[in-house]
Structure formats: C-alpha cells, structure tokens
C-alpha cells in the first residue's frame, strides 16, 4: 500500500522523516507481520508506562505446541516517513533505501560518536565499537557477524552471543532471559525472550523500572482510611454548602 518510491527523495529533502529510534510506534505498524494482532504470549514489558525508556520492540508470538521452544524473533527496524498511505499508515522505508547510496561511515560509533545528520536521538552506550561492527556495511538491511557474513535482524541474538559468551551460555541453559509457557516440555510449549526484548542494542544496560505493587502496611492503610474519611467529610461539607446556596 506504500506510495511509489519516486516520491521519497522529496520527503528526505524537507527532512520530515520521523525516526523510529526509541519509539514503540513501530510495533503497531502493519509492517511487522508477527506483531500485535497475533494473539499468544504477549511481548515483554506489559506496562510500558512504568518504564523510563520504552522501546516497545518485543514481538507477540503464539505459544508453540508441546515439546517446542520458540525464541521470540527480534524486530526488523524500518524508518517511518511522515507520508501516509491511503489507509493512514505511515509510509515506511528500509535501511537500504539510503545506505545503498552512501558509503558506511566507520567513525560512527567510535568513542560514542553518533551520526549527526540523521538518526538523531539515538543513545549509544555500548562500548567503543563502530556502528558497522554490528550493522552490515555491505547491506544495511542486515546485521554483520564477526566473520563478515550477514545475520538477519530477527536473529539478532546470534550477533549478541558472539561477544557475550557467558550470557549466551546461561541463556542457552535457560538461566538468563526468562521464558513463558511450560517447564515440562512434554506437556506444553515454551517461548523464550530474545536479547533485544530486554537490552536495547545501543544502550544495553537494563532500564530502570518503577516498582509496582507497593506493600500495604498497616500504618499506610490507616493513614489512607483517615484521608478518605477526611475527603468524604469535606465533600459532604462542600455538598451541604452547595445545597444551601441553591436554596
């Protein structure tokens, strides 16, 4: 449903592209075939409001049948333009759209340097590596293995595992990264989260969360009851006064 490619350069020229970095918007587009519509195991971070940084990148998947373990695929990023399709969806462009026309800039990423011209807002805190140690300079629609071979975006876990052996080992053993479904695979299937569900590839430190479900201690409960009683009292009072004024 996207408009013809020819209209895109104009869009870029006026710089009206919305970048997708850090946004949850993408998981709602029709571009993500596995995304929200498909029922099943919900994506991580069920209440994004409580999270200081919301990526909204995790993908909903169905719980597989008994005996099977499904690793949630990581998402394939696209860039949204401000143009809309006839159905009101933003026109999306692939990474290669621009990157096939320009050579990779090897400086980006080093010493925390981020592109100045585009992808503003990208928070980069992941060591001193160049962007193209993960992104494939030969094809920006893929990632890059240390030996130069391409890795598809949904398999980003393979990328992370190359440099993070201990966590990759723990993950493979079921001791890092969590899971949903069955402990007993003879009775039901299981879904595993993927690395990028929890770690932003550019700022991988796990985000801070606001704790939920504060314990209701006796003191607080009594205080709340007193406050409620007080509120009820003043409301009554206020209402009474209002009644009078009506008379």
């Amino acid at each position: 449903m996207t408009r013809p490619r020819s209209s895109l350069p104009a869009v870029f020229a006026v710089c009206v592209l919305l970048i997708s970095v850090g946004g949850g918007a993408l998981s709602g587009t029709t571009n993500d075939p596995l995304s929200p519509a498909s029922a099943g195991v919900p994506a991580r971070a069920p209440d994004p409001a409580a999270i200081t940084i919301t990526r909204g990148t995790a993908v909903n998947v169905p719980l597989p049948p008994a005996g099977q373990v499904l690793v949630r695929p990581s998402r394939t990023p696209v860039v949204l333009s401000s143009e809309l399709t006839y159905t009101g969806e933003p026109v999306t462009v692939t990474c290669g759209t621009c990157h096939t026309t320009r050579p990779a800039n090897l400086q980006n990423g080093q010493e925390g340097r981020v592109p100045a011209e585009f992808h503003q807002g990208l928070q980069y805190r992941h060591g001193a590596q160049s962007c193209v140690s993960c992104h494939n300079a030969a094809n920006f629609d893929t990632l890059r293995r240390a030996d130069g071979r391409a890795i598809a975006f949904p398999e980003a876990k393979e990328l992370c595992s190359q440099c993070h052996g201990p966590q990759a080992r723990d993950y493979a053993a079921g001791a890092h990264g969590g899971m949903q479904g069955s402990w007993d695979l003879s009775k039901g299937g299981r879904v595993r989260n993927t690395c990028t569900d929890c770690h932003d590839p550019h700022s991988p430190k796990f985000v801070q969360l606001r704790p939920v479900f504060a314990p209701v201690d006796k003191g607080a409960r009594e205080q709340a009851a007193r406050a409620a009683a007080h509120a009820a009292h003043s409301a009554e009072h206020g209402a009474a006064q209002e009644d009078k004024s009506h008379e």
């Binding site: 053993a173 079921g174 969590g178 899971m179 402990w183 003879s186 989260n193």
Partner: peptide, 28 residues
C-alpha cells in the same frame, strides 16, 4: 503440576527466576 511455569516466573521482566524438576539431570 500441569507442567506450566509459576506465575511469578512468567511475570519477571528480567529473567531472574529459574524453575524446574530437581530430579531431572537435564533441567534448567
């Protein structure tokens, strides 16, 4: 007892919890 994981494990957003059968040498 139906083979499913405990609710607290599934709810954990960090993956800190590991559950399983102590009698199964191949368990997590």
């Amino acid at each position: 007892r139906d083979g499913r994981l405990p609710a607290c494990l599934e709810a954990c957003p960090t993956g800190a919890r590991v559950f399983g059968n102590l009698l199964d040498p191949k368990s997590e």
